[in-house]
Design a binder for these strands. Structure first.
Lengths: 226, 226, 226, 226
DNA sequence: AATGAATGAGTGTTCATTCAT
DNA sequence: GATGAATGAACACTCATTCAT
């Protein structure tokens, strides 16, 4: 029943989605929808919560904490893009609809987004520690960067969902290159190389552009420069 | 009259905005709105077009083609953030509402977005040429990077519009650092330094210190590698 | 438009009356009803107010203050029964519907009813003065009597409206006898005689049982006993 | 189960009372209600019948036929006001709800009301016989008077139920004075005095002073005329 | 004997849209 | 050129009523 709601909300939008349509798509009658979820608002909130939970769980499951920071980021991003690609309606609900229809809903997604930004912030700080450099990055700057990274990921997810032929791995690779190396390094021919697929969770997404080793990536990670 | 429409659409959302409210805010009668713009859809499309045009013109005016690529990007971004900060409703219409309410509107903004992405793509390629490296960046990869850059900019614009105290220059600086240097370099203590304001297009952003050169920025840009 | 509403409310009841039906009966579309009267509640309140005003005006117009008290009561009652007989739906709205559907509406009619009870109270006191007796009727007792008289009149109005062939004058006569003389006197053969019709407002109600003089009535009034 | 229905109908009104609420208040499931009483209409009708029966029985039990007419009336009225005060919801169902929601229900209460009016009519005729006067009261006039008396009693019952601190005996006394003596006699200082409570049916109304005779009342009744 | 689960039909209310002037 | 007045169509929500068990 929530499936139908997410589909309808994701495609039609919150206001354009009629409870009639949702009920019909769910194969039940409208009063039943009202029996379980009390109102359109409640139904929408339930959708948001479910999709938010599913997304964060997918990302956290993807980013295994035993890996080094860049690899965690990579696998987290891959999981993120995979999930959003598989649940375009859920993603639309979270990223488009919930933010466009009332502060209540926006607050709901803002909360979970804050969690993710915090997670990415930790990742960046961990990366700094791993680099044995105590960089002069202040908390606040790191927060801004995490914000930018998450924002870029969200935008790329939208883009991937509306552009055919873009795989989750491609999106993740693009973003890793962009974020981790920066255009400056890329200009100089330095890339961040995604790791072998073998450590990906099974069934993620067929194919990917890179297959090489991890050596370059590792080198790049520990010292993208020199 | 479009002003009123953009304001209402931007604040209430496409569906929640009533033609009554728009007409009243515009100080005219409702049939007059229908006389000039045939329907709510047409009115909304007109809003999208106007705001899209205004935004692209602002960005193009900001990024003066005689500057080096990173400087062009910097000034383009600054213009972008300035414009979105000054026209929050217009930006909401473009980035939130238009993409949330039907494919027709989404296509309208997708078109102009494509233009901007192409512009950024050119910028990146130009930067590569300037670096006298013909990097093995394939067209497709560059497109992805441009996409990521634009996406990050959009997200930051939203963020800046909902977070008090964030100036356009700060947003631009954050993004330049993030995009141009990459997290890897940042972690190593290397930053991209924004140039002095004196090369900003006049009237963009009130006040600010005026200084001379570009030295730090240039240094940062030309040798993120060392 | 209010006519239709009063008719529908009076016949169907507040809740059973649908706005559709009211609009159709009024020969207009439903949104128009909502344009002029904002909601079903407001519409009902408007009906109550209109009918209450019409009723009190009819009664006050009937009871001309230059007459002696019993004659005032008589003519007021006649006007009351005439009005309720001519506006059965309005009367149903006031006396049945408004008191049955929510405290708000009940308060609305309670207010005007209080006015009428006060008016009758004054009438009774005036009658006492006219009798040159300063009876030991305390204010509170008089209020109770006025309450009973008004209540009896209301009930008789209902009864007359549901019993064919009962005229306003008959109801008024019955009530005058009942209230003014009391069953005790009636038992003893003493009646209150309605005055000649010639002083009634024109067009009241055809025919009446009594045509005689005023003498007996006057005697009855000034000294029902002796 | 009917208890719950009467309470709900009496307080919420016929239409506002939901079968859900009734079933819940009765502590049973909704289908069970439909098993015993087929529909909301039938349930309401059953309520009406039960309350009507209870009321008539209470009144008939109160008015013991061996007493003189005015005493019968007095005790009947006392029983009536006692019953309505103790069963406000039942009284609301009978007098407010049943008459407000459809002819079918109205007819149901009209029937039993007719019985009561007939009973009162007999009482009045008996009083006339007792007075050894065969007054020129025509059947029809007597019917009207009974109607007025019953109507006044109903109104007073409503009034007593919504006005705190009014006892059944007070209501009955007020009405006896009003009806038996008439305003004319009252104005002249003559009252009808309620008898001692000792002749009340046991268990009617707790407490109260006990005295002996009926003298004052009798005097009042037998000689309102002098 | 009793119910959890489900629905058809209808409610008040709103809004984009259009005439007659 | 401009509008006051009006509406058709739709929506969120509710409730009496009924199966399958």
């Amino acid at each position: 029943m929530l499936d139908a709601a997410v589909r309808t909300f994701g495609q039609r939008g919150y206001m354009a989605a009629s409870m009639d349509e949702i009920a019909e798509l769910a194969g039940v009658s409208k009063p039943l929808v009202y029996l379980y979820l009390n109102s359109k608002e409640d139904l929408f909130t339930a959708c948001i919560r479910r999709e938010a939970k599913a997304l964060t769980e997918a990302v956290r499951a993807g980013a295994r904490p035993d890996l080094p920071a860049d690899r965690q980021l990579w696998s987290g991003l891959t999981a993120f893009f995979t999930h959003t690609a598989r649940n375009p309606d859920g993603w639309a609900v979270l990223h488009l609809q919930a933010r466009t229809h009332g502060e209540v809903f926006a607050a709901e997604v803002a909360e979970v987004r804050t969690e993710i930004v915090a997670f990415v912030t930790q990742l960046i700080l961990a990366a700094a520690r791993e680099a044995h450099r105590d960089p002069d990055l202040r908390e606040r700057e790191v927060a801004g960067l995490a914000e930018a990274l998450v924002g870029a990921a969200e935008s790329l997810a939208d883009w991937a969902n509306t552009t055919p032929g873009v795989t989750a791995r491609q999106s993740a690779a693009t973003l890793m290159n962009f974020a981790w190396m920066g255009l400056g390094d890329l200009m100089a021919g330095r890339h961040w190389t995604p790791p072998d697929e073998s450590d990906e969770p099974a069934g993620t997404d067929g194919g990917g552009p890179h297959g090489a080793g991890v050596t370059a990536a590792q080198a790049g990670r520990t010292s993208p420069v020199r």
